[in-house]
């Protein structure tokens, strides 16, 4: 079994127990969480799947009719080697037939266009209800910044949103920005993707109806480590979500036993790029680390968030993610140990 799989089992938070029903068949194959577009857990993804199946049935029918005719013609009109001399009757065209096979596709196009247009307007122009949670997503090379402006939360790479329901929806509305180059926010089971483009604010929304962990990743090539710009979205039950919010709103834990590590963080270059609330570190170039250990992965999914990996990461992030913008800081082993001790207290 791959280390990642072992880790997610060992984390064994109640999250794993809440595998959405739609992916149970995948669970039967093994410990996997396939981000399948056909296993939606949220409103836009679900409607898209319905439209997709409708389109698939029309195009499938066309394939069987035209493909069947082609196959029939190829078998039926295969020439025999003995019959090389005579030519078949020459037919140059037929206006009636050609009109018929022009009109039928036009009708199909009209049907497809009208159904599609309806869903485009329904998804794109859906008014934002007052109950909606707002999150500002900012794409960076190669990680995600999540800010909850009304809740005062700033976190990275792992998005927590509340479970919604049909009666009193609590959708999450995402404002999509970029700090550098183009990125794209894609969690297939929740919604289609929308790009994060610098100087071009975008928006998207989800209305998740099943709790669980949903995986995604950046879907617009953004440079060296585009592949390791992974996304995790946790759809929490209301109770879980309020616990999470309360914790994230706290400033960082000040554990006196990790005082030395905090001093390293505040005196070396770490603080230029990272924020830890309640300390002097207010950098914004890298992810907010106030509650680093509340996250399950490091480096936007590059590695499981274990103490050992935190240490390795500080030593040289390139070992996990070559080309990531955090340099190896050339710290002494002692400094690295102190930093690791400190960071692993930030729950």
């Amino acid at each position: 079994m791959h280390p990642m799989a072992t880790v997610s089992v060992s984390l064994c938070s109640p999250l794993l127990l809440r595998v959405p029903r739609g992916v149970l068949w995948i669970a039967a194959i093994g410990q996997q969480a396939v981000p399948s577009t056909l296993a939606p857990a949220s409103t836009p993804a679900h409607e898209i799947k319905t439209l997709a199946l409708f389109t698939l049935s029309i195009t499938g029918a066309i394939f069987f009719v035209v493909g069947g005719l082609l196959t029939y013609a190829i078998i039926k009109y295969r020439g025999k080697d003995t019959d090389r001399l005579s030519e078949p009757p020459q037919i140059y065209g037929s206006t009636q037939i050609e009109l018929a096979w022009t009109v039928i596709p036009i009708l199909i196009v009209i049907v497809l266009f009208l159904t599609t247009a309806r869903l485009i307007f329904a998804i794109q122009d859906a008014p934002e209800p007052d109950s909606a949670l707002e999150v500002t997503v900012t794409g960076h090379q190669f990680w995600w910044e999540f800010r909850y402006p009304k809740l005062g939360i700033d976190t990275a790479n792992e998005l927590h949103v509340p479970l919604s329901n049909e009666q009193a929806p609590i959708p999450t509305y995402l404002a999509l920005l970029s700090a550098d180059v183009d990125h794209s926010f894609w969690v297939p089971q929740l919604a289609g993707k929308t790009d994060l483009i610098p100087n071009h604010p975008n928006a998207s929304w989800i209305n998740p109806l099943r709790p669980g962990l949903y995986l995604g990743q950046c879907a617009q090539f953004c440079g060296a480590q585009h592949a390791l710009m992974l996304l995790r979205v946790y759809v929490d039950t209301p109770d879980q979500f309020s616990v999470w919010v309360k914790n994230q709103q706290q400033p960082a834990i000040q554990d006196p036993r990790a005082e030395a590590g905090r001093r390293v963080f505040e005196t070396e270059a770490c603080m230029n790029c990272h924020t830890i609330k309640g300390t002097v570190a207010t950098g914004r170039f890298g992810p907010d680390l106030t509650h680093l250990m509340s996250r399950e992965t490091l480096g936007a999914g590059a590695a499981p968030n274990t103490v050992q990996n935190v240490r390795e990461w500080i030593k040289d992030p390139g070992d996990f993610k070559s080309g990531c913008l955090m340099p190896a800081m050339q710290l002494s082993d002692q400094q690295i140990d102190q930093l690791t001790d400190y960071l692993s207290t930030l729950r």
């Binding site: 898209i48 195009t59 485009i120 993707k193 617009q220």
Partner: peptide, 15 residues
Amino acid sequence: IMLSIAPWNWQLHNS
């Protein structure tokens, strides 16, 4: 044609 269905394209694009 499947890719031209914009909402489905939001899923399939760049995949």
